[in-house]
């Protein structure tokens, strides 16, 4: 089949011929059966090519994802995981936020801010635990210690490493001696339960108190004391303070002498003003302790 005849057949089957051309071509076909047969074959081939292309395009269209955007949104596992992760993180974050807020309400220290003192050395007298044995004060050591006080009081107060369960409740007990017999050591005799062996006296519970101070211009002495740590805040530049510590089987009692006054240290994790000792008997006892050291 020549190229010219091929073009004719193509035009005929594509409907590109004019009516006159069509008539002429059909007359030609009618005269020659082999030509008619060829034309019919060509029509089948052209239809086959059209069908082939159509099926190609339909396959292409079939392969298109027609899921609407809002449903395909849910069919993407990675996206779901991401959103789930964000949601969980949000819930946890919200929980922590509110839990943290409730914790803050329990601890009013959060609104107490004490400026860190100038790094400087403070010298003060410190009395190590007095050993009471057989009703007598065996020793009352006084040491001096230099302490760097460049840490914020707030840090001290909010020591996260100390849980509430770990805090040892300090219940001071004090046996008031007879004033009349204070001149001799009998007045300082402890009860039978207070009589301890030397080993017992050296238990870890008798560890020296860790003291930190902060110099302020306030005349009030503020303090915190828990878990063997004592924090003091006051104007100690001019007049040093003195710690008086008495250990017995009933527990540890701590007093502070400052500006000729005695103050009692009680266990507390809140920054409080030191309560002044007003009981004359206790003041007298502490005075004797100081003089006998």
């Amino acid at each position: 089949m020549s190229e010219l005849f091929q073009e004719k057949i193509d035009d005929y089957h594509a409907g590109k011929m004019t009516p006159d051309e069509v008539d002429s071509f059909e007359r030609e076909l009618a005269k020659d059966p082999s030509l008619l047969s060829e034309s019919n074959l060509q029509k089948e081939i052209i239809d086959g090519l059209k069908g082939y292309r159509k099926s190609q395009l339909k396959s292409r269209l079939d392969a298109i994802d027609l899921t609407p955007a809002w449903t395909s949104f849910g069919s993407q596992p990675a996206l779901i995981k991401s959103l789930l992760g964000v949601s969980v993180a949000t819930i946890i974050g919200t929980g922590i936020y509110f839990y943290g807020e409730s914790d803050k309400k329990v601890t009013p220290l959060s609104d107490v801010t004490i400026d860190a003192p100038r790094p400087e050395s403070i010298t003060f007298d410190r009395i190590t635990p007095a050993k009471i044995f057989d009703g007598k004060i065996n020793s009352l050591e006084t040491t001096s210690k230099s302490l760097e006080t460049n840490q914020k009081a707030e840090d001290f107060a909010t020591d996260k490493t100390i849980s509430k369960e770990d805090k040892k409740v300090f219940v001071p007990s004090f046996e008031v001696p007879e004033i009349t017999s204070l001149q001799d050591d009998k007045a300082l005799q402890t009860s039978f339960s207070d009589e301890l062996s030397g080993d017992e006296l050296s238990k870890p519970t008798r560890d020296p108190i860790e003291v930190e101070t902060e110099i302020t211009k306030s005349l009030d002495v503020r303090y915190k004391y828990y878990d063997g740590k004592l924090f003091l805040s006051g104007d100690f530049d001019k007049v040093p303070y003195e710690i008086l510590e008495i250990n017995s089987a009933n527990g540890r009692r701590i007093y502070i002498k400052y500006l000729n006054k005695y103050y009692k240290v009680e266990t507390t994790d809140r920054l409080s003003i030191l309560p002044e000792v007003v009981e004359q008997k206790v003041i007298e006892e502490l005075r004797i302790l100081r003089e006998s050291k």
């Binding site: 193509d10 594509a14 052209i46 090519l49 059209k50 082939y52 292309r53 159509k54």
Partner: peptide, 12 residues
Amino acid sequence: CKKVLTYYYFDG
């Protein structure tokens, strides 16, 4: 060949 023929006969 596939492309040339289908472009011609189907796509026109």
